[in-house]
């Protein structure tokens, strides 16, 4: 590829996640050769992180009564056909969902801080169930949010899947990948990293010929006890979620339960089989027990890393 000069504006666009894949690579090449520019990009990222540290607390403050009242009125005015499902009716749920999404949506590159303190063993199972339910809700909300506007549906496209998987693996500190769902008609279009209750998570987005989009949300639960498929439905979004090995998965889409289940089965067998890297394929018939071993593949090397990824979730 011919070397195109990288502009000052592109350095900012790179930091802000507003560059397309080709130019992103050009900037990365530039940063690899220019230590001063790399330091600047790094410092800009830190500034963004500090802004979130300073002001994300506002998101956790419940809205004033007046704000909530105005929000409800505005909602009525703007969306006359808004058939709000029942779960929406609880203000705390609505507010919590909004918090999660704003944190997730902001800046593109920010991931949640703070992993939770370990809980007593006796509570662990109950907690896992609770955690998974929260995780599923986060997945559902993230699906709703990021399929709502095509312009910011993914943070990084799937043009280079190794890059995408490597980047998200680094973010999560676990080896994750977006399975190939081509055989059931869904094409991977990209992904993003998101904060979840479980720490950094990854969302992969797929689309089919009918423009129907599904998202696979991957999180890292503290206790990786294998859990069977569970199903939840919020409004028009269906979600299947389960735990396999060290990871929790949630598959969300505006589909019927039956349609989504077929896709979930395909995803399940793919993620169980492992990433389709250049390595020889792994044995797909491993017994489930073996899946529980923690796979700490923290230092998964990736070909090209955006500079922000020098941040490690564990440090924060």
């Amino acid at each position: 590829m011919s070397v195109q000069r990288v502009s000052e504006d592109e350095l900012h666009a790179y930091v802000d996640g507003q560059l397309d894949g080709n130019r992103r690579l050009a900037v990365e090449r530039w940063l690899a050769d220019d230590a001063e520019a790399a330091r600047r990009a790094d410092d800009y990222r830190v500034q963004t992180a500090l802004l979130h540290d300073l002001f994300d607390t506002v998101l956790r403050e419940p809205p004033t009564d007046a704000e909530q009242d105005l929000t409800d009125r505005l909602k009525g005015r703007l969306a006359f056909n808004d058939n709000r499902p029942a779960w929406h009716a609880r203000p705390v749920v609505r507010w919590a969902a909004a918090v999660m999404l704003v944190v997730a949506g902001a800046g593109g590159g920010w991931f949640g801080r703070g992993t939770q303190a370990p809980s007593p063993v006796a509570q662990q199972q109950q907690q896992q169930r609770q955690t998974l339910a929260t995780f599923a809700q986060e997945a559902t909300q993230a699906h709703r949010f990021y399929t709502s506007d095509e312009r910011f549906q993914v943070e990084l496209g799937a043009d280079n899947q190794d890059e995408l998987n490597g980047w998200l693996s680094k973010r999560m500190g676990r080896d994750v990948f977006g399975p190939d769902l081509g055989r059931i008609g869904f094409r991977l279009i990209g992904g993003r990293s998101l904060p979840t209750d479980l720490g950094a998570g990854a969302q992969y987005m797929y689309i089919n010929d009918a423009d129907k989009r599904i998202t696979l949300f991957v999180g890292a639960p503290q206790s990786g006890n294998t859990a069977n498929f569970s199903f939840t439905q919020n409004g028009d979004v269906s979600t299947f979620y389960w735990v396999e090995g060290p990871l929790a998965y949630a598959l969300a889409g505006r589909l019927s339960k039956e349609e989504l289940l077929e896709i979930a089965k395909a995803v399940y067998s793919d993620v169980k089989a492992g990433p389709p890297r250049r390595d020889p394929p792994q044995d797909q018939q491993r017994p489930q027990e073996q899946q529980q071993q923690p796979q700490q593949q923290q230092d998964q090397p990736a070909g090209v890393q955006p500079i922000s990824d020098t941040q490690k979730p564990k440090d924060s």
Binding site: T71, L74, R84, R94, A97, V102, R144, D236
Partner: peptide, 18 residues
């Protein structure tokens, strides 16, 4: 569309932070 209501609340939380 129920997603509209969620979007709106997300954006308003964002407004409050800004």
């Amino acid at each position: 569309m129920s997603k509209f209501g969620v979007d709106l609340e997300v954006h308003i939380a964002s407004l409050r932070r800004y």
